[in-house]
Design a protein around this nucleic acid. Structure first.
Length: 207
DNA sequence: GGTGTGATCGTA
DNA sequence: ACGATCACACCA
């Protein structure tokens, strides 16, 4: 089987997640398991999480069994379990001397749509397949077994097929968090119909 | 199109 | 007790 695009150099990931995040827009995320057909999405929505300085980050309180991948090699995949039922995937980055990651929030399905629909019966149309961080993982078949794997070695790959990131991405606050809600650390492909939403909810739960 | 709510369980 | 969420019901 053939993996589309080229792999970015390791140095692409070894930077502040705030710099990496917008450059992940329009890149491909490919899951090519041994012995079954690959599926792929084009990334359209991301959020950056820093480490010790970001109260919303899983790495804020240091290393634990769960967030270990965030402290590993840049270019790794950090997959975590949340709400008792969902997996979400991050690209591991590294602000020099600190942990960091970029949450992959949504993508446009580009390869293996029939397999994605089989994994996501609730999705009526392509725009429902990967328009959310947990939906994206379901569509690609990404779960905890892939936590800590290398995006430069597979079976989950980050690939660059030459489509540049948007010149003027939409920048907003992060979604679904209750801390550090003032930071504008979410980037979306302008006008994308495959994003989870273009504008964050006006009111968020406060406690 | 929009809003509100229950599900479900690992984590710290 | 609380999530870096989702699907579905319900209203428009």
């Amino acid at each position: 089987m053939r993996i589309p695009g080229r792999k970015p150099p390791r140095s692409f990931f070894a930077r502040d997640p705030l710099d990496v995040a917008p450059e992940l827009l329009h890149k491909l995320l490919v899951h090519a398991p041994d012995g079954s057909e690959p599926t792929a999405i084009r990334i359209v929505e991301v959020e950056a999480y820093r480490g010790s300085t970001d109260p919303a980050s899983h790495a804020y309180r240091g290393r634990t069994p769960r967030n270990g991948a965030m402290f590993g090699r840049p270019g790794g995949l950090y997959v975590y379990f949340t709400y008792g039922m969902h997996w979400c995937a991050n690209v591991v980055c590294e602000l020099p001397g600190d942990a960091g990651a970029v949450l992959l929030r949504a993508g446009e399905p580009v390869l293996g749509l029939e397999h994605m629909h089989a994994r996501r019966p609730a999705a009526r149309r392509p725009r429902d397949l990967a328009s959310g961080p947990a939906r994206l993982c379901q569509a690609l078949g990404v779960d905890g077994a892939l936590d800590g794997t290398d995006l430069l070695a597979g079976p989950v790959w980050l690939r660059d097929d030459g489509v540049p990131p948007p010149d003027a991405p939409l920048v907003t606050t992060r979604i679904g968090i209750t801390r550090a809600i003032e930071q504008q650390w979410r980037w979306v492909v302008p006008g994308s119909r495959y994003a989870s939403r273009l504008v964050p909810p006006v009111s968020r739960k406060v406690r």
